[in-house]
Design a protein around this nucleic acid. Sequence first.
DNA 1: TCAAAAGTGTTCCACTTACACCCATGT
DNA 2: ACATGGGTGTAAGTGGAACACTTTTGA
Lengths: 228, 228
Amino acid sequence: MATMPNSTTATNPPIEIPPIVAVLVGIFTVVEGEFQVLLIQRSAAPDEGKWAIPGGGLQPDESLDHAATRKLAEETGVTDVFLEQLYTFGDLDDQTSRGSVAVVYFALVDHDRVRLPERTAWQPDWFGMGDLPVLALHNERVLDVARQRIINKLQYTNAAYSLLPAFFSLTDLQSVYESILGRRLDKRNFRRRMLASDLLVETKQTATMGRHRPARLYRFAARQPVEF
Amino acid sequence: MATMPNSTTATNPPIEIPPIVAVLVGIFTVVEGEFQVLLIQRSAAPDEGKWAIPGGGLQPDESLDHAATRKLAEETGVTDVFLEQLYTFGDLDDQTSRGSVAVVYFALVDHDRVRLPERTAWQPDWFGMGDLPVLALHNERVLDVARQRIINKLQYTNAAYSLLPAFFSLTDLQSVYESILGRRLDKRNFRRRMLASDLLVETKQTATMGRHRPARLYRFAARQPVEF
DNA sequence: TCAAAAGTGTTCCACTTACACCCATGT
DNA sequence: ACATGGGTGTAAGTGGAACACTTTTGA
C-alpha cells in the first residue's frame, strides 16, 4: 500500500527508513508419531548458530504467497501443499534499529516427499516440536502461534491431506491427528467422524503392515483446502 | 527479521529495493442496526478520490500493534477496544513497482465514543457495509476478509463488548449480533446462550426505552478479549 | 385499555463421548 | 495357536434450533 495520509497528528517522522520485509515459512510434518518442524541453523548475525524458521527477502513485484511458495520449494522441493499465512511479526529482531517485519506462513508437508538441500551453511534439519533447540529471533513465539493454528485447522479442515501420502489407512490418519494434538483419540469416534465428513474416499486397496489384518486404504476427496 | 539465507537457489536479486510497509486499521461499528466501517477519502494518487481503509507508515522502532493502536487513536480518539491483526496483503497497490506490504488490523468501536478528526483532506466518514462507495487499492478484498473474521469472532469471543456502552440490554446486544451476522436470531436461544456463557453480569439497573416494560441492563464481565 | 418491547420453557434432533469385543492375517 | 493391529455398535449426555405466550410499562 503506497501513499497514505502522511500523518494526521503533529508526530510526523522527518525521514522514514523503510523497514526490511522478510517472508518466513514454518514447515511442519509428522514422522513416526512425532510432530516436527524444519529449522535452519543461522550462519550469520544476529543469533548466529541458533536455529530459525527459514525465510528470506521479498523480491520486487513478488506477491507474499509467491514468496512463501518459492521459499517452501527451495527448502523442500515440495509444491501443492497446505500453505497459509499465519501472522505478521514486527518485533522478532531486537537488534536492527531500522525496524523489521516478518510475514510468516506455515506449510504442512509429507515428510517422504521432502528433499532437503545440500549446503555447507544455513543447514536445515527436522526437530520435534517438544524437543526444540535454542531458537533465534524469538522464533518460540512464532512456533507457539503456528502450533495452535495447526491444531485448530485440523478440527475443521482437511489440512491433514498435506501430511500424508495419497493413500493411507485410518490408523495412519488418526496417528497424525494424535501427534499434533498431543493426546490420544478414541478410534471408533475418530473413524465415524472422519467418514461422516465426506472428506475421505474409500479405495479398493488394502495394505499389510505386519502380521495382522491388512488395513483398508483411503484417499482425500480433495487435495486442496476444504472446510467441514 | 534481518539477514536470512541470501538465497539458496540461483535466483539472487542483484539489488533489493525495500518494499513500503503500511499499517492499516479497519474500524467497525454498529449504529442503529447497521454494520458500518470508517473510510477515508484519498486526496492523492493512487486512486485519488476513492475511499480507503485508514493507515499509514510504520514508524522506526515502532511495533505493529503500537502503530495500529496509534492509527486508531488518531482517527477516532478511542483506545482500549478490541483490536487485532487481520491479515497482511502484499498486492493491494498495483501501481507501485517497488512492492508494498499492508499489515491490516481491525478494531471494533462503540460509535458514541468516537470523535472524528476535523480535516480538509483525507476526510473520514462512516459507510454501511452493504452500501460501500468506490474503494481504493482493492480494499473490497480487505473488507471481505474483515467481515468474515468479525463474524467468526462474535461466535466464540466477547468481542461485542467493544461495540457497546458499559451497560446495555440483551436486546441491544442481540441487535449488534444481528446487524453484523446479517440475519435475525431467536430471542430465547440468544439470551440463553449469552447468559450461560458467563461473559455477562446482570446489574440491578433497568432502562426504560419507550412506553413498554423497561429492560434489565447487563455489563460484560471482562472488557478484554475472552474466548468462550 | 392498548400498544410495544421485555421476558420466559419445552421438545426435538444431531452430534459428541465413553466403552469392549470379534476379525483377518503372518509367523 | 497365538500375537497383533484392523474393524465395528450402542447408550447417555450435551448443545443447538424451533416455537408462542405472559409481563410490565407509558400514553
